[in-house]
Design a binder for these strands. Structure first.
Lengths: 317, 317
DNA sequence: ATAATTATGCTCAATTTGAGTATAAATACG
DNA sequence: CGTATTTATACTCAAATTGAGCATAATTAT
């Protein structure tokens, strides 16, 4: 019997922020002269220096990107082999703990450049339905999945549910399930760069790949955010201290990847009692919009629920 | 600089099952002659033998309790010091990964005895509102919390939200938040048996304590189950292959710790299209009830949603 | 001045929800 | 046997919520 491998824990953080209509994620970009892909800020959990993993996370975030974090939440611990190993060394095993952190619009961090905050949908183009059904679904993904399914028929049902085939029941929260299927089908770059397969099985589909298992963590983060903000008021951690209802709606739409009905969104948000009106107005193009601020706990009627999001509105054109 | 402590990972599983009106959790009971408290099945994650943590979990569950598991889901990874250490050794650090597993009524496991499956509310008496507001809230918990708050006023808001004070907004999903507050306030046995405090700060409140951080994991499990079954059909993993609507409702009530309106529950469940009627009837006391079975994926209208639980009905008497 | 743009107010039918009443089909028990 | 009790199921009804849209207000652009 060989010695048990020593265990290391990596803490990786998906830091999300909103700018305009875009949901962004903070990346650490590779040096130009390297052939690495982008990655999330991450580092090892060091129990003698970090009393909790969240303290460790804040340490690595401060050191690598210097962004001020609002809401922080643990996502998932991935321990399966061959998805996040730095080296192939058999006497160590690295477990990866993913976190989601939200930053508001002010916080952009050190060494800030536009390319460091990347649109989340550049990694998951198939998740953005704000302009209708993404073209890559029918052009690239579904044909490739069909091909894969012909050799892997047992995955039929999983694929049907995750991708809402046959009955267009697309569930926007199934971000991770969809990414995992694409990975298993060998359709993501990670599958042959980090994983077992050395050769691409099929032509890779659109979407930037990341180092290690970071796109998997990012998929978990997006799915969690989409689910969570429906029942807890986390969206306000992404907003500036004051905002208009349209800005709030654009943020909700960026998270969900779907367009919402404006008047009904307004009605719901007003009834939820989450907002305090500042007297102020923001003027841009048309009629000026009132500026609101988030009303914290004690006075809100339903302080613990989130925004009850109405169903999506089909986009014409 | 000292050597970094070696990291070990413990995998602990809260296995839930329903019997009658009770939501049960499988415990490993201490030997009569020991002075240990009960614990969950758990064991170390061994990466050279377990390709994934879930494989490790199934290994320890098979070995220690022999229960067949249905749905299995990772809950949370706890890494803070002083809550789950076996020994106080400074050159190791143990991280605890908690899992939730569901077993149906058939599966009871090896060496089965009634005391091995313990009612979940024996650990959290304050979470069971099926017979009205639990007495221990007003008799023991709230007075003790008031006393604690007088020395820790900054916790006021957290306590108010978690325990629904002032405005009776009890959120049944906040199981972990409530347990953590009670722990921090020194009101649980674990706080002085496992933690920093060597002496109880106040008189401990009702509720059986567990070894290590297992009651914390159990609180996470109950909160997650309460949340999850509202939007995913996990409740059927707790049911026998065939069941009546009343049995389904009793299970929902056991999970939520709340009574539901019978006719409306029936209406909701019928409209959800989750059920197939077997022709059969179950007769017990009054009018015989029809037996149903869970209708899997392909024919259900809303295969991905859960039971939309109507609000609780105040209990009179 | 007029068009375009954005915000906000309001309506209305369809659906869902909360809370019952009414009835049906069995067992329990004198 | 007949009547109370128990449990299941059907149906009703008002209130609230939702989905969709029309109407109007207050700006900037040309």
């Amino acid at each position: 019997m060989t010695d048990a491998p020593e265990i290391f824990i990596d803490i990786s953080t998906a830091i999300m922020r909103v700018a305009g209509d875009d949901l962004l994620c903070r990346m650490v970009e590779p040096h130009d002269d390297s052939n690495h892909r982008p990655r999330l800020p991450f580092g090892p959990f060091m129990p003698n220096q970090h009393r909790t993993m969240e303290i460790g996370l804040r340490h690595w975030v401060r050191e690598q990107v210097g962004v001020d974090l609002g809401h922080v939440e643990q996502l998932y611990t991935f321990a399966d082999q061959g998805r996040q190993h730095h080296s192939g060394s058999p006497d160590t095993h690295t477990v990866s703990v993913g976190y989601l952190a939200l930053a508001n619009q002010a916080a952009s961090g050190r060494g800030d450049g536009p390319s460091l905050w990347r649109n989340i949908y550049s990694f998951f183009p198939w998740e953005d339905w704000r302009n209708g059904r993404p073209a890559c679904l029918d052009e690239a993904i579904n044909p490739a999945l069909d091909q894969w399914l012909s050799s892997t028929p047992e995955a039929q049902e999983r694929v049907r549910l995750a991708f809402g085939r046959d009955n267009d029941q697309w569930d926007e929260e199934f971000v991770l399930e969809r990414y995992e299927i694409l990975y298993e089908a060998g359709l993501t770059e990670e599958a042959f760069l980090e994983g077992r397969n050395r050769e691409p099985l099929y032509e890779a589909i659109p979407g930037t790949s990341l180092q290690l298992d970071h796109r998997r963590i990012l998929a978990t983060a997006l799915g969690r955010l989409r689910g969570k903000f429906k029942y807890r008021p986390v969206i306000f951690d992404l907003m500036a201290p004051q905002f208009t209802l349209t800005q709030l709606q654009k943020t909700a739409e960026a998270i969900l990847g779907v367009q919402l009905h404006k008047q009904n969104f307004r009605r719901m948000v007003e009834k939820s009692n989450f907002l305090d009106s500042t007297g102020k107005m923001e003027k841009s193009r048309g009629r000026p919009a009132e500026l609101f601020r988030f009303r914290h706990g004690d006075r809100a009627d339903r302080p613990l629920s989130g925004l009850r999001i109405p169903s999506s509105r089909p986009r014409r054109g």
